[in-house]
Amino acid sequence: MTSLTSLLKTTHKGSYPAISPSRPELSQVGRTVLITGGSTGVGYAIARGFAQASASRIIISGRREEVLKAAVGKLVDDFPKVQFVGKQLDVADLQGTDELWADLGRQGITVDVLVLNASSPSHPQPILEAGFDKIWQDFIINVRTLLVFAEKFYKQPSEEKFLVNLSTMAIQDWNNIVPEIPGYGLTKSAGTLLIQQIAKDTSPKDMQVLSFHPGSILTETVRRVMGNISDSFDFDGYDFDDEDLCGHFAVWAASREAEFLHGRFMWAAWDVDELRKGEIRKLIDEETYYLQIGVKGLT
């Protein structure tokens, strides 16, 4: 089986020049970016990345009002030239989601980049022990939310759109992560397959689509989930990735440099120059379903 380290010769644990938001080729000047679940963790790192790339407006949604206000306040202080908008929203709330997009329409605001980051981390239990209510709630957040936001994003009257979906290595690592949190692997896999199918039916010129695993970022969600799985997990001793890796990779994913990965699943750690020019590029160009979800062993 191909591993993370054997797939590419070069991987990263932090940001590097090719994905730097200061590169002119990755500039987000003039764009409006909407990030779900953007007030903490990976979503906040991505908001900061787009601000470093000079996005004109960054809208972040979050469930907890005080946490959202604090995040927006910090971003405003750090990036005074960028307009930040906080929207309190539970992405599972269909009425609230409708109101968010309707309000943007009334203000004449078109979203150019949609980052689907909000997710449910699921439960460290077998699926049938967790039960229908918990698992179905994971489907609502990790699958239905993606469809609702992607549809509203796509139907905007704009010429160029970039959809970036935060997926997870749990959709591929059946031996290690999935047995511990099976509901998470199941629903994130379904959500990533949904985004993959949307990409298949959509030209990247109309809406460029890419899913990626952000890496091992120490967030409050990771602390909670890993704490539930193991009381002895060594957070201080684990070699976590720098959060700028996922934040800057998301900016690169919303550029035309990433168009050749339309509909594919990536790791933020993978070196983008090697992806674009190395042996793996040949596989991406020649094999339609390479780095996509399917049934291994069947043609």
Rank of each mutant, 00 (worst) to 15 (best):
T5G: 01
H12T: 10
K13Q: 15
A18R: 06
R23V: 13
G37E: 10
T40Y: 03
G43S: 09
I46C: 06
R48V: 07
Q52D: 07
A53C: 13
S54R: 14
S56P: 01
S61E: 11
G62W: 03
E65S: 12
A71M: 08
G73Q: 05
L75E: 08
P80W: 00
V85M: 05
Q95P: 01
G96S: 13
A102F: 07
Q107T: 13
T110C: 03
V113D: 04
S120H: 14
S120W: 05
L128P: 07
A130V: 11
F132K: 05
K134T: 15
I140L: 11
K152C: 14
E159P: 09
E160N: 11
K161Y: 08
V164W: 00
S167T: 15
M169V: 15
A170T: 14
I171S: 05
Q172I: 12
I177H: 04
P179F: 08
G183P: 12
S189W: 00
S189T: 15
L194Y: 04
L194D: 02
Q196I: 09
A199N: 06
S203R: 02
P204Q: 07
P204D: 06
K205H: 11
D206E: 13
F212T: 10
D236C: 04
D236Q: 13
D242P: 03
A250M: 04
V251P: 02
A254M: 02
S255R: 06
S255E: 06
E257K: 00
E257W: 00
A258P: 04
F260M: 11
F260N: 03
M266V: 11
W267T: 10
L275M: 14
T288V: 06
Q292M: 13
V295M: 00
V295L: 07
L298H: 08
